[in-house]
């Protein structure tokens, strides 16, 4: 197995996906599964390219909801995590609630949001916030906690203010975890928006998916899934790029 270790991190999963896709293609082409039940990967890509010009609006709506939700979730998480980090009582009070909030299935909350906030963007954004909030807060809290106790003492011995301890040490020390949470949140955000849209609305990938599903256009359902995957990966990569730019010392380590 040793020689596998020399192959790049991405080669093996890509190869694996490729094998699955070829297998899938052969099953459909060989007529083992009928095309109207399972479209082949090739068909999905062709349909996807064909429909993109028509559903640009839908994609844009979903993307907007995801991005707005993500940004709001980041802002809320940072504020809450910093407060919790500074006030132990608050941390003790809120931490269990955070976990409980994650045990409620989104599929249950999404229709409630639709009932409370109507069929515009707001309920979808709420779903995005809900799914993105938790990974960011948890990771950021862990990051803020990760500061070396000796470094903390050293700064105290220099008479550093709470603000200086936070801005010079705690916050930068937490950035790695923060971005880990952000990447998870980014990948959740698109699907969060889509789930919100399944509950009804005028525009969005989720709305489009509901329509094509009802007309049994399975190839278009799969094409939508493909678009969701691509958008999610795109957001993930953007966060990764921001992290690369924001943490130049990580590059130095490598």
């Amino acid at each position: 197995m040793r020689k596998w270790e020399n192959i790049g991190d991405k080669t093996i999963p890509l190869l694996f996906i490729f094998i699955i896709l070829v297998f899938w293609q052969l099953i459909v082409d060989g007529g083992i599964i009928a095309r109207y039940i399972l479209p082949s990967p090739y068909d999905v890509v062709v349909v996807c390219i064909k429909i993109i010009p028509d559903i640009k609006e839908h994609i844009w709506t979903t993307l907007q909801e995801a991005l707005i939700g993500l940004v709001v979730a980041i802002a809320l998480s940072v504020i809450l995590a910093v407060l919790m980090d500074n006030f132990t009582l608050l941390k003790k009070a809120i931490q269990p609630l955070l976990v409980v909030s994650q045990t409620i299935p989104v599929m249950v909350l999404a229709p409630l949001f639709a009932m409370w906030f109507g069929f515009d963007m707001l309920p979808k954004i709420m779903v995005v916030i809900l799914v993105c909030f938790f990974p960011i807060v948890v990771n950021l809290l862990e990051g803020l906690n990760s500061l070396d106790q000796d470094l903390l003492n050293l700064m105290k011995s220099m008479k550093a203010s709470r603000w200086h301890i936070f801005s010079l040490a705690k916050f930068p020390a937490s950035l790695g975890s923060f971005f880990s949470g952000l990447k998870i949140a980014a990948t959740y955000s698109i699907i969060g928006a889509v789930i919100g849209e399944w509950m009804g609305g005028k525009s969005g990938l989720g709305v489009y998916m509901t329509r094509v599903r009802q007309s049994f256009a399975l190839d278009k359902v799969f094409a939508s899934i493909l678009i969701i995957i691509v958008l999610s990966l795109l957001l993930f990569e953007i966060i990764e790029l921001i992290q690369y730019l924001a943490m130049p010392w990580r590059r130095a380590i490598k």
Binding site: D148, D150, L151, L154, K156, S157, M158, K159, L168, A169, P172, A173, L175, M247, W249, I253
Partner: peptide, 17 residues
Amino acid sequence: VGQVSYMYQKDLLLPWK
């Protein structure tokens, strides 16, 4: 605090600076 200059065994340099 703040009356002496203090250096630990660990360098405790900030990796991000």
